[in-house]
């Protein structure tokens, strides 16, 4: 049996995904160094087709698409990651309490989770951002509010199964307290499915963020990939690259995260990959 590291890093899909993600993160981190222009600055004539001078062309106002892509990577990644962290934190809390304490606590929290899973999440996110007025914060809040239920369910399921294991009973018998048992005995053993679900959630968060930005609900003053597609859609007929290029960026990034997330899953649960 190979080690986790061999199984994970020996997977060509994971390597491809990590390579693209590494590039995006690098570009996002070094955005001001790489793109000399501010993304909203007019640098040339509008509708320039990609060329050597303007590698990805210019948009309807003559802004550099390259600068937009680079700064957009920043916005998209930061919003998606912060939203994911928030929903993982909240979802874990809800799932852990529900699964560990059971009974009425479980009933109440699970009703709440089911409720949030039933209401159409994307429309809820639209309403939230619209009412909170669009900003980076309201995007993060909206995405987190609609994304936590799956995390809560995964954590609850895992906590229920770990809680039934005998080492947890043994800990009760030697007098360990509830919170210590939850945090030292139970939660550490639910980590691997949580990591997998959490990493896949980043991809979903990017898709929601770009769809909201596409509808014009993005953070004003922040360039993002979804906004670029939305701004370019009216010029589809004459300037196809305005829409195509940022769309490809979203696609590749989401794809890479999914590949890495699935690679994690296969490496953590080796039996499935043996099939």
């Amino acid at each position: 049996m190979n080690t986790f590291r061999q199984r994970f890093m020996g997977n060509p899909r994971v390597i491809a995904g990590l390579a693209w993600l590494g590039l995006v993160v690098l570009v996002a981190a070094a955005a001001p160094l790489i793109a000399s222009h501010h993304p909203f600055e007019i640098v040339a004539e509008p509708f320039l087709i990609p060329s050597l001078e303007h590698p990805f062309g210019t948009d309807s106002l003559g802004r550099s698409i390259w600068a937009g892509l680079v700064h957009g990577a920043r916005t998209t990644l930061v919003i998606a990651i912060l939203a994911t962290l928030a929903s993982v934190a909240f979802g874990t809390l809800v799932g852990a309490l529900a699964g560990y304490f059971g009974g009425l606590v479980d009933d109440g929290l699970m009703r709440l989770t089911e409720f949030f899973q039933t209401i159409p999440s994307f429309i809820f996110a639209i309403v939230l951002v619209a009412i909170l007025t669009p900003s980076a914060t309201s995007l993060i809040v909206a995405i987190a509010v609609v994304s936590w239920p799956p995390i809560a369910r995964v954590v609850r399921g895992e906590v229920l199964s770990v809680k039934a294991r005998e080492y947890v009973q043994a800990a009760v018998l030697v007098g360990q307290g509830d919170m210590a048992i939850l945090f030292r005995q139970v939660l550490p053993n639910t980590l691997s499915p949580l990591i997998v679900t959490g990493s896949l959630l980043v991809a979903t968060a990017i898709l929601i963020e770009s769809a909201l930005s596409f509808l014009g609900l993005g953070a004003p003053n922040l360039m993002s990939w979804g906004f670029m597609v939305g701004a370019g859609r009216s010029f589809l007929r004459d300037a196809w690259w305005l829409v195509t290029i940022p769309g490809v960026a979203i696609l590749l990034t989401v794809l890479s995260i999914n590949l890495v997330g699935e690679g994690l899953n296969d490496a953590l649960n080796p039996r499935l990959s043996d099939l």
């Binding site: 596409f214 196809w240 829409v243 769309g247 590749l252 794809l255 999914n258």
Partner: peptide, 16 residues
């Protein structure tokens, strides 16, 4: 790939 593609972008590409 289809699982990673934003809906609005698919729509626009199909229109194109």
């Amino acid at each position: 790939i289809a699982y990673a593609t934003p809906l609005f972008w698919v729509g626009l590409m199909l229109i194109l």
